[in-house]
């Protein structure tokens, strides 16, 4: 941290950096969401299943996000917990059309919430009930019921219906997340 950095920080020129974890089952649309949040010239055209994880950066109005986009495939899910310590916020993506695997998403969420690195922290969690464009998608209210989100009492959380391909609902979620992170910092 040089003097110049501190100065620019004080003046609000340089944005504060936050680390965010992006979690969710495979094929839920994590990478697509992150891709859509990046500036349009940096977006990639085709999305392939993530192997391991990838680090992406994007900026909102007042924060600079560094996102750990974790792979959701079963064999990589045990990697998630190694990044819990660093994360200041969590984005959890759910495929609203995959009714069968909603229990798996709930199981992974419960494991996440009961992890010692997460359990006692007041870390904001943003849920994206993704793939709202699909015909057999359930509503975000139904998703929050199925995941028993009302049981999360000690952490701020928010659920957004989203369609990552069109980009609908993403900005709303990121705005909420930004407010929460700033509320925690101040």
């Amino acid at each position: 941290m040089g003097l110049l950095d501190r100065l620019s920080g004080l003046l609000g020129l340089k944005k504060k950096e936050v680390h965010v974890l992006c979690l969710g089952l495979d094929n839920s649309g994590k990478t697509t969401i992150i891709n859509k949040l990046k500036p349009s010239n940096a977006q990639s055209q085709d999305i392939v299943p993530t192997i391991g994880f990838s680090i992406e950066k994007f900026k909102s109005s007042s924060l600079s996000f560094t996102v750990f986009d974790m792979s959701g495939q079963g064999r990589y899910r045990n990697l998630w917990e190694h990044y819990y310590k660093e994360g200041q916020a969590i984005i959890f993506v759910i495929d609203s059309s995959d009714r069968l695997r909603m229990v798996v998403a709930k199981e992974e969420l419960d494991t996440l919430l009961n992890h010692p690195d997460i359990k006692h922290r007041r870390i904001p969690i943003l849920f994206f009930a993704n793939k709202m464009d699909l015909r057999d998608a359930v509503t975000s209210v139904k998703v929050s019921q199925l995941l028993c989100l009302e049981n999360i009492k000690d952490k701020p959380w928010h659920i957004c219906a989203s369609d990552a391909i069109k980009g609908e609902g993403l900005q709303e979620g990121v705005d909420w997340l930004q407010d929460q992170i700033q509320a925690v910092k101040t």
Partner: peptide, 12 residues
């Protein structure tokens, strides 16, 4: 009366 185990949907 019948059983089957394997990959279904996207779950192994």
């Amino acid at each position: 009366t019948s059983l089957c185990f394997g990959r279904y949907g996207r779950e192994d």
